[in-house]
Design a protein around this nucleic acid. Structure first.
Length: 561
RNA sequence: UGACCCAUGGUGUAAUGGUAACACAGCAGAUUUUGGUUCUGUCGUUCAAGGUUCGAAUCCUUGUGGGUCAACCA
């Protein structure tokens, strides 16, 4: 356990948990030990990323430690598949845990402590049915009533509890309950269940146990065993805190303390594990790692970087107020990172052929292109140029509106890093749609300037027709059309708000250097957006995911017209 | 009709009894061989009513609004 030392304090103000810690430091407490405690029953999402960044961030900032602990007290819902994915995601985010722990490692200790509570007269075996327990608990406004088994003797309780462990009873026959107060205003304190009988195989302990501790009984004690100083969880556990403290006090063990913060919500998506599972099971999405999912693996596949997610977690802040973060902030964070690190490439999403009539036939030249104007060290690359090229259909208009800087009949534009061209003739198909442009180029204008110093405002991207390679581009939009898909109108469900255009695949023509792109790389397709190769991508059958589009101020102006 | 938590621009988050600010979004402009980036400017905020105080976003009271809790889930 290391001493508290403040390291790389960020410029931002302290959040309330950091304030609590700094007050403790001022009082002379010298240790910060946190933990990230997922139940291995599903994939991690962006909300978990906030918690991970908070817990690991606190440890890092104050020179402490952060554990990874799997809260695996319910064998029927958990699986090793999930522990593996959770570890992968935490590592991907850039964090390394001080220790890897499992609540199931503490089953024996937890059991011994339960016997201790029975011996103290603070716990009893209850024979009531689930239904009887539920009704006798009362409601939020009416007190509960005591179980007829509440006053069993210590010896009888001990005997029964041992026989529960020995497997003498069937699931649901008996439970162990804490003896607190059936009239307590806090429902959680009305003799909460500590153990239930579950003849079920556990992914780590196998069939060693047939009784399993409940969350409330296991969590605080697990924190205590690991000597966690700051047990950080989300707001809905606020009402559990008195119970958390009660067990620790009755047992007289290391006093970990719980602090609650507001979970993350994001517009146009949802964090409910149950609903995300439904989307996977009903094949609305391709899987947990579908790029439209708010899961960490989905964001990764979509091209989000760990740095972007961490920056996002830092910017959303930590407080106790319910919140819904604008998706725009997440997108800002990934653009901010990718703008600095992603190499630029040219890709034509919707190709329109252009023939440069005064350019020599069968000639090819290599145009020097800057890889990243934000990073000189990224260097340059050569891109082939020839008489026939493709430009994007949206970069040409027969009858352009005002302030349209791109190509139109008689107008001139700059081909990025190459020449100025002028549109001399438009060739139409039988439906009246332009299918080819005949242009002339200014041989003196290569790389910049022009033969006579004239200024040309428009710059468009291009690919050489004989050199370009084909690729599938998957263009993503929000999965839902509603800002808060959980907020459903009368008679509807969240699936009624699915966006039919959340994924659109197009065939594009891209520059040849992209043939060797590999999963994990990010590129900015100039003037289009950020893209990353999808795991489905194969040589000769390239697939790229759009991480996020570029900011599009022309699109905004055009939309207003 | 219980206990607990929360309430600051459109969205988040600060201000810790002393000039309500920062980011994102929006708007306007400058720069730009990406209508990107960068830079500048700008719009706009303390749930209500009382009280304490020289002074309240902050403390107190009462409301109002939102949230959590009645799984042998976590």
């Amino acid at each position: 356990m290391s001493e508290v030392t403040k390291t790389d304090a960020p410029a931002r103000p302290l959040n309330f948990i950091e304030e609590i810690i700094e007050e403790a430091i001022a009082r002379g407490e010298t240790r910060v030990h946190t933990r990230f405690p997922p139940e291995p029953n599903g994939y991690l999402h962006i909300g978990h990323a906030k918690s991970i960044c908070l817990n690991f961030g606190l440890a890092k900032r104050y020179g402490g430690l952060c554990n990874l602990r799997f809260d695996d007290t319910n064998p029927v819902k958990e699986d090793v598949e999930y522990v593996d994915s959770i570890k992968e995601d935490v590592r991907w985010l850039g964090f390394e845990w001080a220790g890897e722990y499992y609540a199931s490692d503490y089953f024996e200790q937890l059991y011994q402590w339960a016997e201790q509570l029975i011996t103290k007269g603070k716990a009893y075996v209850d024979d009531q049915t689930q239904e009887q327990i539920r009704t006798s608990r009362g409601t939020v406004t009416v007190p509960g009533t005591n179980s007829p088994w509440r006053d069993r003797t210590v010896d009888e309780n001990l005997d029964l509890f041992r026989r529960m462990r020995a497997g003498e009873f069937a699931d649901g026959d008996k439970v162990l309950r804490a003896k607190i107060d059936m009239a307590h205003p806090n429902m959680l304190m009305r003799d909460p269940i500590m153990y239930r009988i579950l003849h079920s195989e556990h992914h780590r302990t196998g069939d060693k146990w047939c009784i399993y501790p409940m969350y409330d009984y296991a969590h605080g004690e697990s924190d205590s065993i690991e000597r966690i100083t700051h047990s950080v969880c989300t707001l809905e556990f606020d009402v559990h805190r008195p119970l958390y403290d009660w067990f620790i006090a009755e047992l007289g063990i290391f006093p970990s303390h719980q602090y609650e913060f507001a979970r993350l919500n994001l517009t146009y998506t949802m964090m409910s594990k149950r609903k995300l599972l439904q989307l996977v099971q009903e094949k609305v999405v391709g899987g947990w790692d579908d790029p439209r999912m708010p899961t960490i693996c989905g964001l990764r596949r979509k091209g989000y970087t760990p740095a972007a997610v961490r920056a996002f977690a830092d910017r959303v802040g930590v407080a106790k107020r319910d919140n819904v973060i604008d998706l725009g902030l997440l997108e800002f964070c990934v653009r901010e990172d990718l703008n600095k690190v992603a190499e630029r490439r040219m890709a034509v999403v919707d190709p329109l052929k252009v023939v440069i009539t005064n350019y020599p036939e069968n000639a090819t030249e290599n145009i020097t292109c800057v890889n990243n104007p934000e990073d000189e060290a990224a260097g340059v690359r050569k891109v082939p140029f020839s008489r026939e090229i493709y430009i994007d259909r949206s970069d040409f208009m027969v009858d352009p509106p005002k302030k349209y800087y791109r190509l139109s009949p008689g107008a001139e534009v700059r081909l990025r890093y190459a020449y100025l061209i002028r549109c001399e003739e438009v060739i139409y198909d039988s439906a009246g749609q332009p299918i080819e442009l005949r242009c002339t180029y200014d041989p003196e204008s290569k790389g910049g300037g022009s033969s006579d110093g004239r200024k040309v405002k428009g710059v468009i991207h291009w690919v050489s027709a004989p050199h370009a390679i084909e690729a599938e581009l998957r263009l993503y939009d929000t999965l839902f059309t509603r800002e808060n898909p959980d907020d459903v109108e009368e008679g509807k469900t969240f699936t009624d708000y699915l966006n039919p255009d959340s994924m659109v695949a197009v065939r594009a023509l891209i520059e040849p250097s992209l043939a060797s792109a590999t999963v994990g790389q990010s590129f900015q397709f100039e003037r289009v957006g950020y893209f990353t190769p999808d795991p489905d991508s194969r040589p000769g059958a390239l697939v790229f995911n759009r991480t996020v589009g570029l900011k599009d101020s022309w699109g905004k102006i055009a939309a207003k017209e």
